[in-house]
Design a protein around this nucleic acid. Structure first.
Lengths: 286, 286
DNA sequence: CTAATAGTGTCTGTTAGACACTATCTA
DNA sequence: TAGATAGTGTCTAACAGACACTATTAG
């Protein structure tokens, strides 16, 4: 005995009569915030837009979701199409941006993803397809004011190689019990990010920085075996400040197990450690 | 001098020629996880579906985004249409679910939002429009196994009034450096949640529980002035376990300021406090 | 007085910041 | 040996869990 709706239709009848285009549908895209650490700096992959809109601006790799394609698959495909990169160690959804007027073409709802990978997973990054260029930008965020429910930060996105620098002022403000984040580009910049991509970048930086100390997220930016100094270097690159070596080692060792191997460096050889996966569940979904 | 793309088009020409329907577009919906605390329990608002698909199942209030409507506005509108509720103290995006096969009608990408509100903001909740019924369900999550990067929990969603109970087994597993969450309904249930709504509910519970101690999120479930005991009751309802009164008071007072007012109760009158908004920036976007 | 609820104080083990120190390699 | 990097130990203040205690109302 099949359930029928108020029009007396079975599920099959309902579906047969269903018209997905009764109303105008938005278009759906995905964007990737891909980060790594190299040369002691947190890095972000950007492409230069080849076509309208935002032509010539730097942008997150991304593009349209195929109708029958899962979103995660779409964002991986777009990244590969535009930059030739296929390796991902850490991968999660960040946020969906869907303001009605965020793109001049049509209503476009975009979902941003965050991916992290160790430096040596990135062989060659070359612009392909829709991208006029691709480059790794150094990225740093520094809080400049913090009071009464308002936090003002300076978010710098710089590529020496491309002679490109973008400096944004990001303001997080508590309004009616929830946070509102605004950003504006500062005049010392010589180029800009397409659309609202700065918001996704800002959220990604916040996420990685907030979790650097309390979760194992750093190990997605490191090879499987690494020295304590390498971990600390990545930690300092992500947070943007130096930390005490003794204290850092004391605390991080709780998440590690010694492999028994050594790495020869200039002075005393360093012991190699690997991340104890017992601590992985700390990587919350939130 | 206007920028032109490889086809020699200006932005205006490009936009004029742009066809948003060159490819099939998914449909876009929003869903609301609305929670409150009453009778010492964390509560969740669900509606009973009146139409296919998932007819007769309990579901999150929600529906289609109008083409030129912001997503936040859409989710508020749908909530009002289906349940008559308009008050929101806390409001944020949770996650976007977009698996290609998650809805039998067509490709539907849905964005779930979380809203919290104090009990006394909810006047009458009545099913309207697309909903056959609406009810507040008690919700509790209890971890039953935790080892080696895997966490298994039991998520109970119960309404005595509607004689409805749904028990899900939720498994968070660390795979290749990121978390995968799976859920299955247990046979002791007598009804179920539509589509993948259990995933949004699970994320919402995690989020509120994780932030209960370290942020001011609880104050979105409380009136502007409240006693320490009322705060502790809400805390215990959210986390699902009792806590030490002395320690709780010592710690929570850091976020409060005394209003000087008193509330007469059965025994000694209780001092009233309000949340110190200096602590609101702790409400991170992550 | 008792019952009921509000509210405080104190002990202890753990953690986090600051900082001085030792160890082992190469040239 | 010096120079460089790895790695340890210790003091202290702050914090967190456990638990015993006092305070003020109504009746």
């Amino acid at each position: 005995m099949e359930k029928r709706n108020e029009q007396g239709q079975t599920l099959e009848e309902f579906l047969a009569a269903y018209d997905a285009n009764r109303y105008r549908n938005p278009s759906n895209t995905v964007d990737m915030v891909l980060m790594t650490v190299s040369e002691g700096k947190l890095k972000l992959l950007l492409i230069k837009r080849k076509n309208h809109p935002f032509i010539g601006d730097w942008a997150l790799p991304g593009g349209f979701i195929d109708f029958e394609e899962d979103m995660e698959k779409a964002v991986m495909r777009e990244l590969e199409e535009e930059t030739n990169i296929t390796d991902h160690t850490y991968f999660r959804q960040l946020y969906t941006f869907g303001n009605a007027d965020r793109d001049p073409r049509t209503r476009i709802i975009t979902t941003a993803y965050l991916s992290l990978t160790p430096e040596d997973n990135i062989r060659q990054t070359k612009a392909q397809d829709d991208a006029a260029d691709a480059a790794w930008f150094s990225i740093s965020k520094e809080v400049i004011r913090l009071d009464g429910g308002t936090r003002e930060s300076r978010l710098s996105i710089v590529s020496e190689e491309k002679n490109s620098h973008m400096i944004y002022l990001v303001t997080d403000e508590a309004q009616h019990n929830y946070m509102v984040t605004k950003s504006e580009i500062l005049p010392e910049s010589n180029c800009r990010l397409a659309a609202d991509h700065i918001k996704a970048v800002n959220m990604a930086v916040d996420l990685v920085q907030n979790r650097a100390a309390s979760t194992g997220i750093l190990f997605n930016l490191l090879p499987d075996e690494c020295t304590l100094r390498e971990i600390q270097n990545v930690y300092e690159a992500v947070t943007g400040h130096k930390t005490d070596t003794g204290n850092f080692r004391r605390d991080i060792k709780k998440m590690l197990k010694a492999t028994g191997n050594q790495k020869m460096v200039k002075g005393k050889p360093a012991a190699l450690y690997s991340f104890n996966p017992m601590y992985q569940y700390l990587e919350e979904n939130l």
